[in-house]
Amino acid sequence: MSHTAHIPSHRKPRQRASKSALRAGVAGGVLSTIAVAGAAGPAQAEPVTQTIEMPTITSGISTAVAASAQATQQVALDLETQANEDAAAEKAAKAAKKAHAEAVRKAEAKKKAEAAAKAKAEAEAEERAERASRTSERTTLSASAGSSDSGSSASAPSSSSSNVSGSAASIVAFAKAQVGDAYVSGGTGPNAWDCSGLVQAAYRTAGIDLPRVSQSQSTAGTQVSLDNLQPGDILYWGGAGSAYHVAIYVGGGEFVGAQNSSTGTVQRSMDYDRPTGAVRVL
């Protein structure tokens, strides 16, 4: 026995060598197996060349979708057509209604125009007849006044209109001939008057020019008492110089005056509207 046989370090390396050899053999076998498998793998694998066809399922769906779209479009067109027809019918109905209303309006307007024309013609005829009557009356009165002026002497003044002569007769006759005429503010005839316009026109028939307004007419002559009036005297309402209304005394306690727009030119008793004073121009 070697002198080193009892030294453990000398025995252990032998064991390690055996284990190492064993391990090397195992590892070599595993690696050989892997190598063989690796070498055999590529040679045994075959590429997949078969193509699997899937059934076509979209053709039927496309046809159904197309049919549905076409149906929807047709419904939309039908609705649009109906809407257009309804709008056209409504427009036509409105136009017909408007035309009917316009026709009714024109018919009514024509009827009113015809009635107005007829009334105007009748009024004009009546006015012409009235003017003719007044002209005849004025001519007769003027002739009577002229005959009286050509006499030897004038009759004495009287409160009775039937005995009036001269200029007073002409004034009274003119005033009475205007009874029934309209009252218009600022009117000076021939068929519409205001109070001072009528007095001025009546005195003009006797060749006398009076002021235009009632204030001036109320001081155009001599102030006289209401108890001592003569036909042709000017009656006034309000103060002398500030009168707001005038009329002509025609005798018998009556006067003629263009009163207002409601009554027009009237012949009334002095008791109807008692004047404030009177002035005598003749």
Rank of each mutant, 00 (worst) to 15 (best):
V224H: 06
E254I: 01
R134Y: 05
T219R: 10
D271F: 02
G38A: 15
V224Y: 05
M1G: 13
A67R: 06
S2Y: 03
I61F: 06
Q259I: 10
A123R: 14
K97S: 13
D86C: 00
H10Y: 10
K176W: 00
S161V: 03
P8N: 12
Q267R: 14
H10N: 15
I52D: 10
I208H: 03
A17S: 12
G151R: 13
G241T: 07
G186C: 12
Q230W: 08
P55H: 14
A95L: 13
S9L: 11
D273Y: 11
A35R: 04
G253V: 12
A67Q: 09
L198V: 09
A206D: 02
W237K: 01
G253M: 13
T263M: 12
R128Y: 02
A101N: 07
V65R: 11
I52G: 09
I208C: 04
Q44A: 11
A119Q: 12
D149T: 05
S9H: 05
G207L: 13
P47G: 13
S170W: 03
T33D: 07
A43R: 10
V36M: 10
V246H: 03
A175Q: 05
K94R: 13
S148H: 03
Q44C: 01
A96K: 07
A192D: 14
E80S: 07
A177Y: 04
K97P: 00
A39T: 14
S218I: 01
A168Q: 14
Y183W: 10
Q44L: 14
A24I: 01
Q217R: 02
Y203F: 15
A24G: 08
V246E: 03
A45G: 12
G257W: 09
G38D: 02
A17M: 11
R280H: 09
R131N: 15
A116N: 10
A123L: 14
A83E: 08
A121V: 11
G38M: 07
Q200L: 07
A101M: 05
P47H: 07
G207Q: 13
A83Q: 10
S68Q: 05
A45F: 15
T72R: 10
P275C: 02
V224A: 07
A192P: 12
G25L: 05
H100L: 07
E124D: 15
S59K: 09
I61E: 04
D233N: 06
V26A: 07
G186V: 14
R105G: 00
R204S: 15
G239L: 09
G189N: 13
T135H: 10
G60W: 01
D78T: 13
S167D: 14
A243Q: 02
Q223W: 00
E254D: 10
G180I: 07
T4C: 02
Q73P: 00
A202G: 11
R14M: 08
A177R: 04
S9Q: 11
I171S: 03
K112I: 07
A125Y: 08
C195S: 15
I7V: 15
G253R: 12
A24D: 00
S159K: 12
A117Y: 06
A101L: 08
G25F: 01
H3K: 08
A169C: 03
S155I: 06
T81Y: 05
T72M: 09
T219M: 08
R128K: 14
A117V: 04
V246G: 03
A192H: 10
V250Y: 08
R138A: 04
A93E: 08
G241S: 07
Y203N: 08
Q215K: 03
Q82Y: 09
S150F: 05
Y272N: 14
